[in-house]
Amino acid sequence: MQDTIERQAGQESRLERGKRVLSEIDGKAGEKVIDSLADIAPDFARYLLEFPFGDIYSRPGLDIRAREIATIAALTALGNATPQLKVHIAAGLNVGISRDEIVETIMQMAVYAGFPAALNGLFAAKEVFRDHV
C-alpha cells in the first residue's frame, strides 16, 4: 500500500491524494467524518483531507501500519479523543494491525499517559472489535 501511495503522490493534488489515502485507510468511516462536516465546516473537512492524509500520511519514511500504531498511541495518550481513537482502531485493523498489537499499543500508554487513559483506550478497542467484521 505504501508503494502505491508514494507512486501516485506526485501526480495528484493534496486534496485528491488525501481523499484516496483516507479511503485506503479508513474506508467508509473516513467518508462519514468528512460528510459530517459538510454542513458546519466544509473548509475544515478539506483541511483534514489535505494536511493529515494528503501531506503527512502519504510521506515516505513510515508505512501506513506504523503511522496507525503511532496514531492509536497518541489518541490513547490524549485521553479525550475517543471518537477519533475508535476510527483509528478500525483503520488499524483495516491496514493489518492485529487486535493483540492494538491492545499492546494501548496498554503501553499506561506507562506514559496513565491508567485512566489506557483503560478508556481499551474500552474503545473493545467496542470497535465487537463491531468490526
Rank of each mutant, 00 (worst) to 15 (best):
Q8P: 01
Q8C: 06
Q8F: 04
Q8S: 01
A9W: 06
Q11G: 13
Q11C: 07
E12A: 07
S13D: 02
R14M: 14
R14V: 12
R14T: 12
L15E: 13
L15N: 07
E16N: 05
R17T: 08
R17N: 14
G18Q: 05
K19T: 14
V21T: 01
V21D: 02
V21S: 05
L22A: 12
L22I: 12
S23M: 13
S23R: 14
E24W: 14
E24K: 09
I25M: 11
I25R: 01
I25T: 07
D26Q: 15
D26I: 10
K28M: 01
K28N: 04
A29M: 12
A29E: 15
G30N: 11
E31Y: 13
K32L: 07
V33W: 05
I34V: 01
I34R: 03
I34H: 02
I34Y: 00
D35S: 15
D35Q: 15
D35G: 14
S36T: 04
S36L: 06
S36K: 08
S36A: 13
L37N: 01
A38G: 11
A38I: 10
A41P: 07
A41K: 06
P42Q: 04
P42L: 02
F44Q: 10
A45P: 11
R46F: 00
R46P: 04
R46L: 01
Y47W: 13
L48P: 08
E50A: 08
E50V: 08
E50D: 10
E50F: 05
E50R: 05
F51Q: 00
F51S: 07
P52H: 05
P52Y: 05
G54R: 00
D55H: 13
D55N: 13
I56D: 10
Y57N: 00
Y57Q: 03
S58Q: 05
R59T: 00
P60K: 13
G61S: 03
G61R: 03
G61Q: 03
L62R: 15
L62Y: 13
D63C: 04
I64R: 01
I64W: 06
I64A: 09
R65F: 04
R65P: 06
R65E: 09
A66P: 01
A66S: 14
A66T: 12
A66M: 11
R67D: 10
R67F: 05
R67A: 06
I69G: 09
A70M: 14
A70Q: 12
T71R: 11
T71N: 12
T71D: 11
T71I: 12
I72V: 03
A73F: 05
A74I: 11
A74L: 14
A74Q: 08
L75R: 09
T76S: 09
T76Y: 07
T76M: 09
T76F: 08
L78Y: 14
G79S: 07
G79P: 03
N80I: 14
L85V: 00
L85F: 00
K86A: 00
K86E: 10
K86S: 00
